[in-house]
Computed example of a mutant assay.
Amino acid sequence: MLKVVLRLLADAVLVATALFVSAGTLAWPRAWVLLTVLLLVRTIGAFAVHRTNPELLRERAGLPLHAEQPWADRVLLLGVLATGFLGTPAVAALDAFHWHLLPQPARPVAGLGLVLFALGWSLKSLALYANAFAVATVRVQRERAHAVADSGVYRVVRHPFYAADPLIFVGLALWLGSYTAALTAVAPVALMVVRLRLEERVLQRELPGYAAYAARVRHRLVPGVW
C-alpha cells in the first residue's frame, strides 16, 4: 500500500507543479482546495479498492507501460495524461492569472465544478473496485485469467473509468475559474475516445465473453446516449 500512496502523492505533486508554475504564484486558495480534494478522494478510494483488488492497485502504481501494450495505446495514453491531467490545470492557471480570455464562471458554477471533479475521481474508484483487470494499459491479461467485468458500474456503461475523465477535466477547469480550460478539455477527451475504441477492438477480438457483454450493456460512456 505504501507504493500506492507514494504514487498518489507523486501525481498530486505533478498537478501542483502544473498549477503553480503556470500561475506564477503559490497564493491560490482554489488550487490548494483542489489538491486537497484530489488527495482525499483518491486516498479514500485507494484504501477501499485495496480491500478487494490489491494486485491491481500495485500494478497501477507503476509506470503505465507494458511489453504487450500496442504502440498506439502508448501514444494515446501519454497524450491523455499530457493534455488532460497536466495540460488542463496548466491552461486553467494561465487563463486565470494571465490570459483572461473568457469571463470567469460564477461561484455556483465553480462550486459545481468542484463537485464534478470529486465525482469523477470517485467514479474511477468505483470502476477499480468492480474490475480487478482495469490496468492502465490496453491488453488482455492472460497471466491473470482475464475475465469480463460486468458488475457494479460496469452494468451501466462499458467504460466507467473513462467516463470519469470529462467530469474531472471540466470540473477542474470550472472550479479554477476558466471556461477556456473547460473548452480545451475537448482535446484529452477526444484522445480518450480514440483510446476507448482501440481497447474495444482488442477486447472484442481477444477477450472471451466481451462481445456478449457489449450486446447486453449497449452504451460505452453515457447511459442512453453512447
Score class of each variant (00 low, 15 high):
Leu34Arg: 05
Ala12Ser: 13
Tyr129Met: 15
Leu2Ile: 04
Ile168Pro: 01
Ile168Ala: 05
Gln141Asp: 10
Leu76Ser: 09
Ala61Thr: 03
Leu86Tyr: 04
Asp165Ala: 15
Trp71Tyr: 10
Thr88Leu: 14
Leu123Met: 13
Gly177Gln: 11
Ala134Glu: 01
Gln141Tyr: 06
Arg139Trp: 00
Ala96Trp: 04
Gln69Glu: 10
Ala215Tyr: 00
Leu40Ile: 05
Thr17Arg: 11
Asp11Tyr: 07
His219Arg: 14
Glu55Lys: 15
Leu14Gly: 03
Gly24Gln: 07
Thr180Lys: 13
Gly62Met: 09
Trp175Ser: 12
Phe117Asn: 05
Glu206Cys: 12
Val138Thr: 06
Gly171Trp: 04
Arg7Ile: 01
Leu39Ile: 01
Asp95Asn: 11
Leu196Cys: 11
Ala163Ile: 01
Gly62His: 06
Val4Leu: 13
Ala212Cys: 09
Leu126Phe: 05
Arg216Asn: 11
Ala48Glu: 06
Ala48Ser: 09
Ala46Arg: 07
Pro64Met: 13
Asp150Ala: 15
Val115Met: 12
Val4Ser: 11
Ser122Gln: 10
Arg142Ile: 08
Val157Asp: 05
Asp11Cys: 15
Val140Asn: 07
Arg201Ile: 00
Thr36His: 07
Gln141Glu: 09
Tyr154Asp: 06
Leu39Gln: 07
Pro108Trp: 09
Val135Phe: 10
Phe20Met: 10
